[in-house]
């Protein structure tokens, strides 16, 4: 059994970000949300991105999730240059390579768990029988095999987040991008969700956790701290980091 302290060799690079910047124009003012961020994320890493509000944490997450493109810099996702993709190409990357888990779950309220989880498969053009089969499988994997025909308002918060995680997993993505996944849950349920993420990590998934809670970030094997649009610290928590200076997990 693997422990939290075991050291694993890193897999191939999934995300390779070099010197990206992002400027927003707010009225007359230009807000420099990211001022040159470098980041490499390998397959089967469990990384937490932390930082106070205004640190550029959300902006970086949007970049990583291919929801937005950088103003300058290079972003390679599985060796493909994402920075210059158009809307539809980005949509295809999000569909196949990225599984989103949101703080507010973002389930479609009038659809059953099954239909919610089917959605990415529809956008991927999978045929109906395969979709139901696959979605049922993934829902069973996250412990909701008996809730597939329930609608979100018939589920508890923890169950809703499980549906959302199943939806994130259903297309077999390269990364799971979880934005404050426990933010709307009580601590006990939150802990259950973190256990589920831990379990997914152990099964070989790459997980990127965006949070401002230290307790939650502590689940990750590596923590990146952002401040004022720059990476302030990149600790290799419990996994050997090769190309970044190693710091200790003492202060942020």
């Amino acid at each position: 059994m693997e422990t939290r302290n075991s050291i694993r060799p890193p897999g191939p690079v999934v995300i390779d970000i070099e010197n990206i910047t992002k400027d927003y124009v707010m009225g007359e003012e230009v807000v420099r949300a990211l001022r040159g961020v470098n980041l490499k994320i390998h397959r089967n890493e469990y990384i937490a991105i932390m930082g106070p509000s205004g640190s550029g944490k959300s902006t970086l997450m949007n970049m990583l999730g291919c929801l937005d493109t950088p103003t300058s810099g290079r972003y390679e996702f599985n060796g493909k240059n994402v920075a210059e993709m158009d809307d539809d190409e980005l949509a295809a990357v999000r569909n196949r390579e990225i599984g989103f888990v949101f703080q507010t779950f973002n389930l479609l309220p009038r659809s059953t768990s099954l239909r919610n989880v089917e959605l990415p498969l529809i956008y991927a053009g999978i045929q109906p029988e395969r979709r139901v089969e696959r979605a049922t499988q993934v829902l069973t994997d996250v412990g909701l095999g008996d809730r597939i025909h329930h609608k979100p308002n018939e589920l508890s918060g923890g169950q809703r987040q499980r549906v959302a995680i199943a939806r994130a997993l259903v297309n077999g993505p390269s990364i799971i991008l979880a934005d404050e996944p426990t933010g709307n849950l009580d601590s006990k349920t939150g802990e259950e969700i973190m256990e589920l993420l831990e379990d997914l990590y152990r099964r070989g998934n790459t997980i990127i956790l965006v949070t401002h809670e230290r307790d939650i970030a502590a689940h990750a094997r590596r923590t990146v701290h952002l401040r004022d649009g720059l990476i302030e610290m990149d600790h290799a928590g419990f996994i050997a980091e090769l190309d970044m200076p190693v710091a200790t997990q003492t202060s942020a």
Partner: peptide
């Protein structure tokens, strides 16, 4: 918000 979610899940403009 639903539109945003759908886009995040891979819905194209079309």
């Amino acid at each position: 918000k639903e539109i945003g979610t759908r886009k995040a899940l891979g819905a194209r403009r079309r």
